[in-house]
Design a protein around this nucleic acid. Sequence first.
DNA 1: AGGGTCTATGTAACCGCTTACGGTGGAACG
DNA 2: CGTTCCACCGTAAGCGGTTACATAGACCCT
Lengths: 344, 344
Amino acid sequence: MATGREIAQLCGVSVATVSRVFNQPETVNEETRSRVLRVARELDYRPNESARALSTKQSTMIGLVWDTDHRRPGWRHPYLQDVLIGLKSALSAHGYHLLMLATSGDAREVGASLADPVGYVNMTRRHHLGGLVLIDSGSDADAFATFAQSGVPCVALDVPLDGPRATYVTTDNFGGAREAVRHLVGLGHKRIAMITGPAGNQPSEARVAGYRQALLDAGLVPRDSYLVAGDFYRGSGTAAAQRLLALDEPPTAVFAASDEMAVGAVLAARAAGLSVPRDLALVGFDDIEVASVVEPALTTVAQDKPGFGVAAAKAIMAMITGGEREEPVVLPARLVVRGSCGAG
Amino acid sequence: MATGREIAQLCGVSVATVSRVFNQPETVNEETRSRVLRVARELDYRPNESARALSTKQSTMIGLVWDTDHRRPGWRHPYLQDVLIGLKSALSAHGYHLLMLATSGDAREVGASLADPVGYVNMTRRHHLGGLVLIDSGSDADAFATFAQSGVPCVALDVPLDGPRATYVTTDNFGGAREAVRHLVGLGHKRIAMITGPAGNQPSEARVAGYRQALLDAGLVPRDSYLVAGDFYRGSGTAAAQRLLALDEPPTAVFAASDEMAVGAVLAARAAGLSVPRDLALVGFDDIEVASVVEPALTTVAQDKPGFGVAAAKAIMAMITGGEREEPVVLPARLVVRGSCGAG
DNA sequence: AGGGTCTATGTAACCGCTTACGGTGGAACG
DNA sequence: CGTTCCACCGTAAGCGGTTACATAGACCCT
């Protein structure tokens, strides 16, 4: 790799001038500038990022905090790849890379433990990262508070985060849920139940609120027995559906807070000898890939998955350059009607 | 962040000694070492990675080459997340991070274009990356040759790669396919067709070979008309199945080189009014998530997805420290019998 | 006692780039 | 013609580590 010094020598200028050509082009004479650029091109010069980061105290990297191995070991993020696609392409546009931070493991590490927010913040400093994107990294409130207060720009996905340079991006969960339930109401359903996410989960709570609102709008009274908590995973959807179907007055329609749980509900209905959507209408949330493959295909509320990544990238970049907190981003939700709700 | 210099001053030693404490502990006196360590702990010292990389000419980062936006825009890797999980955890164990390299975008860049291997290699040098993991980055032979010959340690997933410090990891595609077809044979099928991947694709070719071998082993003659090419995606599976079902003597069983195509075949069978597995037995390959959700659930050849990441990490680390080429890794394949093949 | 060896540490150069500061020459000005 | 100003560029001091080399004792040996 050619260095700035070599270029400087070949051009008969100082290294400072070479550096200026790339960082403050307007301050260097037109002619010498083009001379430097030409030589740089010939030598295929690329500034050394380590040196630049050391000197500048900032790299062109954003850290990704993504813990996989705590809580549910088998758990997979339903649309991580889409988020990454959006994130990567949006960051690329700014010349930034995405660094998937290692969790612990470094023997040299003085005291970082698994999923330790302090450890991540330290990594951020050590590598001069521009900021952090937090994706599904546990629902530990303390952890998030640590991130938010650390001063490093960070944006969380789907988890409210508030700090001097911390924000988050989420979907219009309320609106999406309301529309889903409205649709069910429009199909004539009166007994509509919901399988929620875990208590305290912000997106889930918003979806529940949307569900209630839609019921109230339609003059229906929400019943407590029609609200069963799940944990977003498939198994809990099956269990919840079983409980609902065992009620004296079982629902004719169920809105699940996630597609995974909706699939679980389909399985439960099938096992109970019920036909979806004839005996039980179902609507999910997320629009994950399996939603279109299940039989019947799932009616669901689609999230703008790459949009998460893009919005996160935008927010991070804005905070890096602007320095101030960005407003939270709320992405639109869109009802996708397929077979499971009983409408064409 | 505390620097080495501060520690040195507090301990009354030179920065060199502090550095040695962390890099060549045995060369420094027991007592001063513990003193330095204690102060380091108190100040929560972490060596600055940029500085270290600059000086050492190597960082603790591995680059990930993952092009999303060329060829099929909507395409998703069927199990990227699992690979990443394995990769990340294995790299973490060595204290390495995973850098998702930005594709183009950097205005400063002298001449890097999208999906340009040279660009990636340059990034590797600029960031002093330890090596590169190539995942599904096009089947462009030239591109791979460039990577392989660049001298940077790199390991590809599922694409043969050979160079001084380049290798790859793949599944036992031959064995897996042979076992799948054997199973079909064992169920009494005589007319077994296969939906292959694109021509030239190494895993696909190996699966075809396994398919042929299983037929020959059973004394069956492979027919050309029973070999239909797809492209791994769902749509091609549907199309291929339609062609197969339209034959004068349609197959009673089909082995698809990917689960996506198998799902497509299920759809085609369903559309043709055929029952799977009664009228048509199906076996896929990959064991992706939807495989267990389709009706009937897909019998398939499972790949060790996190194993890809783990093996890749191991190979990279070995090449970094060892300097020599590692042997390609072949992961075992495992037949998962579910409903679509007609066996319990 | 003098020389050799070994251990522990300091000194200083270096990695490659950025940038504050200062100097130079020519144009503009009074 | 002497100032002033500005555009342009070089000098050099970092950034925070690593490491080759030098140094200083301590210890051992003849």
